[in-house]
Write a protein that binds this DNA or RNA. Structure first.
Length: 574
RNA sequence: GCGCCUGUAGCUCAACUGGAUAGAGCGCUUGGCUACGGACCAGGAGGUUCUGGGUUCAAAUCCUAGCAGGCGCACCA
């Protein structure tokens, strides 16, 4: 339930029913009418631009129209107790006590679903898709958490979400990776020195993979790289995927589907997909222009198959074949997306790192081409994460090219803090992540601040010997919220709006920001009793004003629903 | 040279897809508070939303021309 939606449709209905009375000739921009949270300094519950929107197309004076609408609404909707018109034509609405009680009781009754909707769409969300050549590093972390929480958010809204991981287990990098493992095995077995060459993976984890392969497969013959390649590849990939899955698990992330690139090649899906595009005239044989700017030394003009992605908004047409005629990474990816389309999702979402921004246009172009523009694909980009320790840039690299792994990060800070902080910023903005800040137990640390609010609420329930799962309700006759409680009610009513906007815009960062604000209201409410004893909640182990319990419950409900979406735990004691 | 992202208080960032007096935290400043009912709270100062044009009842938000920073730009993945 979303009270803004509910009352907005009532307002729309009333307007429609009284079209003549209001002298409205056209209502074609009804969709632009909104019902929103009034500015902070005004003492109202709802605020609408109805009159401004309707006055424009009907060429009426917005203030006059607003006061006519005001009278009409006061007559037709009993939940509206007071309405005022504000320049240039807004109407501000105060809900009656009955309305507040009605809505609050509804929330108290439907705790777990408060804020959610029942959309029933299907989503495929591809995220992480880190190359299976080693463990995850911090760069993957943000996108991983973003994708996971976005999935939670969309599921919370009643959608069906498939979390997918595309395994890039094909191509040269895999060959290099396997060769690295191969050389490490020889290092162990034959005491050959591992010489770091370009393109080889030097990391210590390769040694561990090598050791384990030797341990589990005593008979493996590593005399000749070519002969043992396939077998070694199988073991190496399995090992590196195990590392990645372990990292993901520790971050609280689990994918539903792992899609292998080499399987896709094996099934001949690339050829089939390219042929399909050829048939529809989106592929041609030709030459590509050299890259703009500085032309690389080994640039060659080669005849090849090209996808005409400029037809779908890309800046240039894209190669499907490499210089040697084999398929490009992009060609494989087009086939992969063709497979996604065939699985009939309503929406496709890809979560990418900032370094893949340039890839978006071509792959969305491919999806448009493959689906006749019917399937919608959104690509969300997560900007870079910069690590800090006590305000200083933090680098662990012993050698250039080394990275900070997720494991190292988890050694420093816990999963909850990482998840919350990685989302506490718009995905479009770069993110500074300070190890020490995140460990602080102060207001500086938003994770703590929200968790602390919940812990305090639990201390109340312990004192009163009640459970937050208890079913309570409030009574119209006794209900008399004070100004602080009124603020809380309004904030709580806002929650479904936050969820909806976060889901629609694919911007989960709105959730932690909101939770922080809600926690502020709670801490403030809690502290009021110290300044003025009439605001005290508990005395001698008993609740003073029965209704104040409702506010505690409301806050607990929303914090819990919010943190569940974020995948961050809520300790009852801290 | 081209594309995408960013530019908002001293610093780090919000602003519900065009709304009202642009909000938080940190820092600064004034006050309260022996603790799971002070890990906090209340108040104050702090703004030409990068710049110039445009669109309209209304612009941080949309269009346009610039400026500054980040990421990327054959093939590779």
């Amino acid at each position: 339930m979303n009270i803004f939606d509910n009352y907005l449709s009532k307002i729309n209905e009333i307007i429609l029913d009284n079209k003549k009375l209001l002298k409205l000739t056209t209502l074609d921009n009804l969709v632009n009418i909104n019902l929103e949270v009034p500015p902070d300094h005004l003492d109202y519950d709802l605020s609408s631009n109805v009159s401004l929107v309707l006055a424009k197309t009907n060429k009426l004076n917005p203030i006059n129209l607003a006061s006519e609408i005001k009278n009409l609404l006061l007559k037709k909707e009993s939940h509206f107790e007071k309405i005022d018109v504000a320049r240039p034509g807004f109407i501000n609405i105060k809900l009656s006590n009955d309305a507040l009680v009605f809505n609050i009781n509804k929330i108290l009754k439907n705790k777990d679903t408060f804020g959610s909707k029942k959309y029933k769409k299907t989503y495929n969300i591809e995220f992480v898709s880190a190359n299976p050549t080693g463990p995850m590093h911090v760069g993957h972390c943000r996108g991983a958490i973003f994708g996971d929480v976005l999935s939670n958010l969309l599921s919370f809204n009643g959608n069906k979400v498939v979390r997918e991981y595309y395994i890039n287990d094909y191509g040269n990098q895999i060959r290099n990776f396997v060769e690295s493992v191969y050389l490490r095995i020889r290092e162990i077995k034959f005491k050959e020195k591992f010489v770091v060459k370009e393109n080889l993976y030097p990391g210590d984890y390769i040694k561990d993979i090598a050791k384990n392969i030797i341990k589990d497969n005593k008979n493996i013959n590593v005399e000749n790289f070519k002969n043992c390649y396939e077998e070694l590849k199988k073991f190496s990939l399995k090992a590196s995927m195990a590392l990645i899955k372990d990292d993901l698990k520790k971050l609280g992330i689990e994918h539903d589907n792992f899609f292998s690139e080499s399987e896709l090649v094996k099934k001949n899906l690339v050829n089939i997909t390219v042929k399909e595009l050829q048939n529809r005239n989106f592929v041609e044989e030709g030459y590509l222009d050299p890259p703009k700017g500085e032309i690389p030394k080994n640039w060659k003009k080669v005849k090849r198959l090209i996808f005409k992605s400029t037809k779908f908004g890309d800046d240039a047409d894209r190669a499907l074949q490499k210089n040697d005629g084999t398929w490009t990474y992009f060609a494989n990816d087009v086939a992969y997306h063709s497979d996604k389309i065939s699985r009939k999702f309503d929406n496709l979402i890809n979560i990418l790192g900032a370094d893949h921004t340039g890839y978006i246009k071509r792959i969305t172009a491919a999806v448009s081409a493959l689906s006749n523009k019917k399937v919608k694909m959104d690509c969300k980009v997560c900007q870079l994460v910069k690590l800090y320790k006590n305000g200083q840039p933090f680098k662990m690299s012993k050698r250039a090219g080394d990275f900070i792994s997720v494991k190292e990060l988890l050694n420093e800070v816990n999963k909850d803090s990482i998840r919350f902080m990685m989302l506490n910023r718009s995905n479009d903005a770069e993110l500074d992540f300070d190890f020490e800040k995140v460990k602080e137990k102060t207001k500086d640390n938003p994770v703590f601040y929200v968790q602390y609010a919940y812990a305090r609420i639990n201390s109340i329930s312990r004192t009163l010997k009640i459970s937050l799962n208890d079913q309570i309700s409030i009574n119209v006759k006794t209900f008399q919220p004070n100004e602080y409680e009124h603020k809380i009610i309004r904030k709580i009513f806002e929650w479904p709006k936050i969820v909806e906007s976060a889901a629609n815009k694919l911007e989960p960062h709105k959730i932690p920001f909101y939770l922080y604000e809600l926690s502020t209201l709670f801490h403030s409410y809690w502290s009021k009793g110290n300044e003025d004893s009439k605001f005290k909640l508990i005395q001698n182990g008993k609740i003073i004003k029965e209704d104040s319990l409702a506010f505690i419950y409301l806050i607990a409900i929303v914090i819990k629903n919010g943190m569940t979406i974020l995948g961050v735990s809520l300790p009852e004691k801290m």
